[in-house]
Amino acid sequence: MAFPRSRRVRQFYLSMLFLITGRAVQAASGIDPDIRREVSRLPEDCTLKLTVWPKGPGFTLRKTEAGTLRLLPPQETSDADMHMEIQAPALGFTLFTFRESSAAAASKGRITASGELALACSLVRILNRTEIYLLPRRIALRAVKRYESPPKKHRRRLHVLFRTLIFKPPGGSP
């Protein structure tokens, strides 16, 4: 069963984590060359959505003309080319407290994916790379299958965190 017991605390935690992760992915997509390469292979205008069933939270990212990802405001998040859905808030909590990696969650059928699964693979790689910037190494080790320290990690980490906090979009319109 879920920990902590209070659903409201858990929901608040998840909302915060989704907000931070969504912003961080947007920021990292303008900074990390591997993420940029991954995004460049996505179809134009492609939208990727990650939510928790039944009532969220979640985020939607769209590929911009500049080849980065942009976090869409909630009112623009209806349809997506690929939608990943975590099957329960408690399972989302396990994933976002980094007690289970996204690969393990996918392999256990805890996440539903609707749409082209190649896009789901891209989103998971982008999330993993972003987590390496966001999280201390010891925690990131639990969240990703293989920890690869990117070049200039500390400088880029500061850059990603700064952009996440001030929520500066990485240029380009959706």
């Binding site: 069963m1 069933w53 039944p54 099957q87 329960a88 408690a90 399972l91 396990t94 059928g109």
Partner: peptide, 12 residues
């Protein structure tokens, strides 16, 4: 562990 957390989604 957490098997029951799948119950509502499966029913849905």
């Amino acid at each position: 562990a957490q098997a029951l957390d799948h119950l509502p989604y499966v029913l849905h």
